[in-house]
Design a protein around this nucleic acid. Structure first.
Lengths: 337, 337
DNA sequence: GTGAAAGCGCTAACAT
DNA sequence: ATGTTAGCGCTTTCAC
């Protein structure tokens, strides 16, 4: 059995009381220099580490934050997590990552698991399936600090940080139009996600601005964000079966972008000759792809950092916070032709 | 402040003692049916969840396991993590993921952080920099259950699970030879990693079997596994500057494979005409690449599952385990030409 | 069938 | 400057 040393072990070995040892280790002013040295040295020698569970129980905080994302294999999220970690570890917090795989149920389970006092705060990007956010509302009402990023709810009043999705979508769509495309389809994640709504808005705005009609047949939603390959395949097939086939697709997500390219390749549709493609993706290997795809990149790392800063501010605030920020960060378009 | 209900809250509300409530909730035989019902219903109503820190303190276990990998953005690891999670959650364990980013120091810090009783066991794949494993030996000697996977140490006696690296490397190299390549280079991670040693062995075995010489100039190690792009760039450039340039490269890792393709593209070296490429990679987008690359895939998900099974067996074993398994799983070659 | 009390490891108020 | 004690939330003897 793994039984790390405790304060009591030190106290017994040195003939002191546990409180003296505790105070010595935390360098309190009331302890004499010699005692401190004695304790420090011995603790060092036996490699003493305070029991975090005892600390948490006592101090009613765990120094750890929970993260809820759809999946770490997504480049956007893995980069965001790196940003989260960089801030968290600097400030002495553990990071507990959970994945929803775009499932509402897993999200609910993960959140409840995290909640019961094993974390001090929550960093969340909603799953594609999530329409009902009551599991978050419940915790939020009871004072659990939480910050949403990327996919945010509209009915919870707390800090939020998002990319400028509308602008990104507008630029990507405009880019396709300027490249000469006239019939631009839109492949999106589930229709209730904030990112879907905003990106759709940017897409339609670009069409309007360039005097193009919005064709409802050209807009396809994937309720699970392309988590199941069939979803994407189905959506793309529908587009290709239209009488008036699109000549370009604007894709509203990382996984969907990859999935769509896979389907196009499978269907032997040449990019960009038969179909131009642009979409949101933080993949770092787009340059290696056979089919060039213009991409909208989100500042994932920075978003993770900012979200964590905000969360720690909520957690460590002495007074209840009532003013919440809604931070929006610009995206960047990488054109490829 | 977030203050979830406690046993005491239930006890007070119902005019019972905390011990009765505790027993009722855990369905002990000594409690009357009516009291149980009373307690259950009330607990349900206020959404009572036991405080995990108090439980951990009491029971001296945390029901969580720590995972140490180089980075979640790596496809092999993200798939392995999915395997780990699937088993862990089924058995009621939390999973705490930490990344080393191939740094020995981060590995050491992460492990010490995890160790001090905030986890019941450890699942580890060593960082590229790690030559000294004393931080693991220390914990291992004190009884911390741990299982190594993928990149394993040779001086710690515990369960290990690896892909059949030698076989995979042999097949990939043989494939290059059969495609007509004669001068096959080898791009590897740091030279002390178990995976590097085994893959190098498979590479040389394949050359020998086909009557080819091993040319030391053709073997390049990247001490940080290609974590820094310059590393890979430097190694590939050296290969290209040789008088007798290689006509193929066998690459021993996911990140290196991607990195190498990027460098080749940058140098405008055509694949496979000027340079054939084969290597270990669990990327799911290799099919989309402009340059075809044969890949050795490891059964990452299954390895994660198996490692977790083994770890839980160690953790939950009543008696000290002294017999350790060294499980080796076959890889699969996906040829592309 | 239920309650009182001790203890897991730690800190802090209260002695001395 | 150091020791004693209570308590964080929970389980588990030991009483009744």
């Amino acid at each position: 059995m793994f039984e790390p040393p405790t304060l009591k072990d030190i106290a017994n070995a040195l003939g002191l009381s546990t409180s003296t040892v505790s105070r010595a280790l935390r360098d309190t002013y009331e302890i004499s220099a010699k005692t401190k040295k004695l304790v420090f040295d011995y603790a060092e020698k036996i490699n003493y580490q305070p029991n975090p569970n005892a600390l948490s129980l006592k101090e009613r905080r765990t120094k750890s934050i929970g993260v809820v994302v759809s999946e770490v294999a997504n480049h956007y999220f893995s980069q965001a997590i790196n940003g989260i970690e960089s801030i968290a570890y600097d400030r002495g917090y553990h990071v507990i990552i959970t994945q929803t795989h775009e499932s509402y149920l897993r999200e609910k389970i993960n959140v409840q698991h995290l909640a019961s006092r094993s974390i001090d705060g929550l960093l969340v990007s909603l799953s594609a399936e999530t329409a009902d956010t009551s599991h978050f509302n419940y915790l939020h009402e009871r004072g659990m600090p939480m910050v949403f990023f990327d996919r945010v709810p509209n009915n919870i009043n707390t800090h939020k940080i998002t990319a400028n999705n509308e602008q990104g979508a507008f630029e990507a769509t405009s880019h396709l139009i300027k490249s000469g495309c006239k019939r631009i389809a839109h492949l999106a994640s589930s229709d209730h996600l904030s990112i879907s709504i905003e990106r759709l808005r940017g897409y339609t705005a670009a069409l309007h601005q360039h005097g193009l009609q919005v064709n409802p047949d050209y807009i396809k939603h994937c309720p699970h964000g392309g988590m199941f390959p069939e979803e994407t395949e189905h959506a793309v097939s529908e587009l290709m079966n239209l009488k008036d086939k699109p000549d370009a697709i604007f894709i509203a997500g990382d996984r969907l972008s990859i999935g769509c390219l896979e389907v196009l390749k499978k269907l032997n549709i040449k990019v960009p000759e038969q179909m131009a493609v642009a979409g949101f993706s933080n993949s770092n290997v787009l340059d290696l792809f056979e089919y060039p795809m213009s991409s909208v990149r989100q500042p994932a790392f920075e978003m993770g950092e900012a979200a964590t800063e905000m969360l720690l501010q909520l957690i460590e605030s002495k007074y209840p916070v009532t003013e919440f920020k809604d931070k929006v960060i610009d995206t960047e378009l990488f054109a490829r032709d």
